[in-house]
């Protein structure tokens, strides 16, 4: 098994593991990922936020790599040494990428349904600057409907290509894709075609930003006012394992369950997502795990008992 060292922590990983996956195995200093999605073939490499510095190529060929590499698409070699947060060059480049991602982003978080669970928001919070140096008009698109359940806010899109990969890999009839070129590329169906497929709703779950949102949930609440609960049902199409998002007694939306990297644990079908919004449809398992740092966890049940400071507050 190849041995790789990331930010001075060494780990043995199976051959073919990427640097990013190796970092996830270590669990610390994991490079962020906006376009990479472990469950989608061919994803990654595009957003460039996961760039890292390879200071030693391998035991066999110890030369450093000349440029920063996308950790999500670079396989580890035995003896490889990688710098992520310990490299000022990486931090600088990442800051640059975040700035580029925000250049044309509308920053309309106050009216965006994704706010509170948006990866771009997290990323900007961590790496972004308080002020933009971009002084020009942002590119704008009209909002579009992709079918009757999904809203496309192209202005917010960062062109991660995940949704087209979902459409390509989970569904048999691909009707949407990336149109145009360069700065004005857009996700679109070209001639307003509905995506009529039982798994199309997963495009919402894989979208790292608020470009694709669930129309049945649109403007109903802020995510941090809702309570996520794990539940399941017997479904013939998917695993039926979901997260229900409650406000009071009402199920406002249904999504797949997310793992600690924000990826769906299993893709769910549209019936579970859109048509089963009564508690009686589900067997409730219990509160969903929400990262303590997430805004969603505020006022909620998963008590941060390990922190003495907060404990004090609670008393």
């Amino acid at each position: 098994m190849p041995k790789v060292t990331i930010d001075d922590i060494t780990i043995d990983v199976p051959a073919g593991t990427t640097i990013l996956e190796a970092a996830r195995m270590i669990g610390e200093n994991v490079p962020p990922a906006m376009c990479y999605y472990s469950k989608l073939k061919g994803s990654g490499g595009k957003c460039r936020v996961c760039l890292v510095k390879v200071t030693k190529g391998s035991e066999k060929d110890p030369r450093p790599m000349p440029k920063l590499v996308a950790s999500c698409r670079t396989a580890v070699m035995d003896g490889m040494e990688v710098k992520n947060v310990t490299s000022p060059e990486v931090i600088e480049a990442r800051k640059g990428v975040v700035e580029f991602l925000l250049v044309n982003h509308p920053l309309d978080c106050p009216v965006c349904d994704q706010a509170g669970e948006c990866h771009l928001q997290d990323l900007s919070y961590e790496h972004g600057a308080a002020k933009s140096r971009y002084e020009f008009k942002r590119r704008t698109f009209e909002t579009r409907d992709i079918g009757d359940k999904i809203k496309l806010h192209m202005n917010r899109c960062i062109l991660c290509y995940r949704c087209t990969q979902v459409a390509d890999q989970l569904t048999d009839q691909r009707v949407h894709g990336v149109l145009g070129r360069g700065e004005v590329s857009e996700i679109s169906t070209y001639i307003e075609t509905a995506i009529d497929n039982e798994f199309s709703g997963n495009m919402i779950d894989v979208c790292p930003v608020g470009a694709l949102t669930d129309k049945t949930f649109r403007f109903k609440s802020r995510v941090w006012f809702t309570k996520p609960v794990y539940a399941h049902r017997n479904c013939t199409k998917c695993t039926g394992k979901v997260t229900l998002w409650y406000q009071g007694e009402e199920v406002l939306r249904v999504t797949s369950r997310k793992d600690q990297w924000g990826e769906s644990e299993a893709f769910i079908c549209n019936e579970c997502r859109y048509d089963k919004k009564a508690t009686s449809d589900w067997k409730i398992e219990g509160p969903a795990h929400v990262d303590r740092h997430s805004v969603i966890s505020q006022n909620h049940y998963e008590l941060p008992f390990e922190l003495p400071v907060t404990q004090k507050k609670l008393q």
Partner: peptide, 14 residues
């Protein structure tokens, strides 16, 4: 091929 595959290409090339 799917129509979208044609649209993707037609809008890419100048």
């Amino acid at each position: 091929i799917h129509p979208i595959e044609v649209y993707e290409v037609a809008t890419f090339y100048s």
